[in-house]
Amino acid sequence: MSKFVRVQIFAVLITAVSSLWALKCGTLETSWSEVWAIFTGSTEPLTVLLRELRLGRVILALLAGAALGVSGTILQKILHNDLAAPEIIGISSGAGCAGLLLLFFFPESINLLGVAAFAGGMLAAVTVYLAAWKQGVDPARLVLSGVAISTLFGAFTAMMMMLNSGKLVGIFEFTLGGVSGKGLVEVRQSLPFFAVVFICAALMKRRLDILSLDDSSAASLGINVELSRLTALALAALAAATAVSVSGLLGFVGLMSPHIARKLGSGSAGKQLLLAGTIGACLCVTGEWLGRIAAAPRELPAGVFLSAAGAVFFLILLLGHRRDGI
């Protein structure tokens, strides 16, 4: 059994254990037999409640985390930059900004949150791409323009929040990131988008490997570099925007997951997508679980823990780069 297979199995096991704990723990104390009943088709009122809400939240956390891991992996591959992630280059902030616009000004249309987040994420991705265009798109310019667009959307979001401070209740969690208040209904609504993301990413894995080479080498292997990079960017935007639409602005998952996957020896894009997706899912569901138990009986958004973990991870990463002389 190769190292990658062992690592992947271990990551899946950790994710499964975290998911089970996230199903068990919460404001409402439950036993393991009641958790088991969720999967046996029991129609007990408590079981139905757990299935509709807690199972839905766990599935959403898993899906959102996996999508952010996939998005981060795609961006790091096509931008040749270890620090590229949807939250760093503006895609998440674009999706979040559009989501907040909807929540502030059209709260009755909350069921369109996914569409708004997707539109915002894509708008950000296209803006980043156009801003970086100069007879083609250079990965370094793409990252720089992404950081600028991210800052711009961040400033706009802050301004909206300042001007609408009276409406912040309930919206605050969206900016922190989390899946509380969600359930199986949101799972059913978002599942087709997540399915498209994961299937397209799997189909693009070899092209991503080629895009991770320099542009001339990539072109010499018979691909249209600009078109392929734009397609991959759009897929990363769809992945991040879909995640934002169900879980708000979960920070650092898209940065941490691909990094951890790479450190664990997933050399090719296919392996890295799989492992980063699993790690992203694990991070989000663990954040969701910690949010339930850390300040029980109150709940904290998963994003609080992920941001804290991400900040520490980011610093470790920078120190590592400094040690390597980069």
Binding site: I210, L213, S217
Partner: peptide, 28 residues
Amino acid sequence: ARRCAILLQEPYAPAEMKVAQLAALGRY
């Protein structure tokens, strides 16, 4: 790409890519 291959002066590949994986891209 099937007719012409090129070894560039300063090609780039991600540090984590395995040598065999890099070579296998030539079969794309």
